Amino acid sequence: MKLSRILVPVDASDTSKRALKFAANLADEMGAKLDVLHVTYFTSETDAQEESWLPEVIVGDVRSDEAATQTMVKGCMPDDVDYAYHTRTGMPVEEILQFAEESLPDLIVTGGRGLGVVEGFFAGSVSQELVERAQTAVMVVK
């Protein structure tokens, strides 16, 4: 099976970093284009007011997470991999699924949270929902 497009949703976590490295190596081997997607729940621009209703402690966290994610992506990406970095704002699973519907990847590579069956059942996880709901193949990297 030849993969031409791979989607990897990321944040600044270690599991995300492992998934990104795996996806980048796979894209390199297959000559596939890699779409790297970072989703945040909100940004300082989330509301239309001139002055954000979000406290600076939260907005600052979002900015530092975005910067950490971009740095991680740049550090993990081999020179010869064709990739694009995308950002979305909203519920992570919904935004990832919407992006996948628009971009039509052959594979979604995501990091697993490492929860057990019981913890995963109660807490839920993005990777679990992607496995259940995505219309394309999903690979979970632990």
Rank of each mutant, 00 (worst) to 15 (best):
A137M: 09
R133E: 15
G90V: 12
E102A: 00
C76K: 04
A134W: 07
T69D: 01
L54Y: 02
S44P: 08
E95I: 11
F22N: 12
G111I: 00
L20V: 06
Q135H: 09
D11S: 08
A12I: 01
E29P: 04
L107Y: 00
H86E: 08
V39E: 03
E56W: 12
P9C: 14
I108L: 02
C76A: 03
V73D: 00
V131P: 00
S4E: 15
S52C: 01
T87C: 14
D47W: 03
V73T: 02
S16V: 13
T40W: 03
P105A: 03
G120E: 06
F99I: 05
K142S: 02
T69A: 06
K33D: 03
S44E: 15
D47S: 07
G60W: 04
V126W: 08
R18A: 12
V10D: 07
L37R: 04
D79S: 05
V138Q: 01
V126N: 05
E66S: 14
D80Q: 10
V126S: 06
K142D: 03
P92H: 09
E45H: 10
E101M: 01
S103H: 12
V109E: 08
A84Y: 15
G120R: 06
A137Q: 05
D11K: 05
F122M: 07
D11W: 01
D106Q: 10
M30V: 03
V109Q: 10
C76G: 02
S44G: 14
V138Y: 00
A84F: 15
Q70I: 06
S64F: 09
G90C: 04
A137S: 10
T40N: 08
A27N: 11
R113D: 09
A134H: 04
S125C: 15
E119M: 10
D14E: 15
H86T: 11
Y41S: 13
S127Q: 07
T40E: 03
V140G: 13
P9H: 04
V140D: 15
L34S: 02
V10L: 03
D11L: 02
D61E: 11
M72L: 05
L26Y: 08
E132G: 13
A134K: 07
G90N: 12
L7M: 01
P92S: 14
E132R: 09
L130N: 00
N25P: 00
A32Y: 05
V118R: 04
T110I: 08
S125P: 12
F122L: 06
Q135M: 10
S125L: 14
F22W: 12
G31P: 01
A32C: 00
E129V: 06
G31V: 05
Q135T: 12
G124A: 09
D14Q: 13
M91T: 15
E50C: 07
L54R: 00
L7Y: 00
S103F: 09
V93T: 01
K2F: 08
R133H: 13
V93I: 01
A12F: 06
V131H: 04
N25V: 11
Q98R: 11
A67L: 11
V138W: 03
M139K: 10
L104Q: 15
L34V: 00
Q70R: 10
Q135S: 11
E29G: 11
T43H: 11
K74Y: 12
D14Y: 06
S127E: 08
L115R: 09
A123P: 00
A100R: 02
V39Q: 01
L97F: 11
L20D: 06
T69S: 06
A48K: 11
